[in-house]
Structures are given as structure tokens and as C-alpha cells.
Amino acid sequence: MASTILIAIGVLFNLFGCIGLIRLPDVYNRLQSATKTVTLGTWSILIGVLVRYGFIDIGVKALIAIPILFFVATVSAHALVRGSYIFGIPLGKKSVKDDYKEQYEK
């Protein structure tokens, strides 16, 4: 039962992340919403798997997937942000501050 609740919470957070992917205005904000929420949602699903099966092979593998997912999500988010800035995609209209510009143009 607890595992089903954890999986349901995970799917709910994934839903929020995907709504953010559709609604937010520019690529940087989309990445903000999507990478955090989808990663925590997937962690929640994996912990649900661990709670359901305990420490046999499937549970341990789900536990190993959590740190892998942490590094994968954060490093690829960083690479995408930096890549799209260098590619020349401007920040959205609502943006108030851009300190990176002067550094990048040097």
C-alpha cells in the first residue's frame, strides 16, 4: 500500500513537470521546471519499488538507479543550459538580469 502511494506521488510530480514543460515561456525555465520535478518524481517511483520488494535484486537496483539519475539529470541540465546559451538562444521576455552576458562576450 505504501509503495502504491509513493508511486502515485511520483506520477503526480511527473505530471507537474510535464505541464511546466508545456506552459513556461523559454528554454531555460522549461529546463528548470522539468529537470527538478521529473527527477524527484522518478526517485519517488523507485523508492516505491524498493518499499514494495525490500532488499532483493530489484529493490537494490532501484536504489542504485537513484544516484545515477541524480548525476545524469543535473549534468545534462547544466550541459543543455550552457549549450543553448552559447548557441545564442535569448532569455525570455520576462527576464530581469543577465550577468553571464558580459563574461561570455569577453
Partner: peptide, 9 residues
């Protein structure tokens, strides 16, 4: 959507 994005140092 209360957002106010920007890049800070």
C-alpha cells in the same frame, strides 16, 4: 505564472 528569471553571479 509568478516567474522573474535571470542569470546571477
Amino acid at each position: 505564472m509568478p516567474i522573474k528569471p535571470g542569470i546571477v553571479r
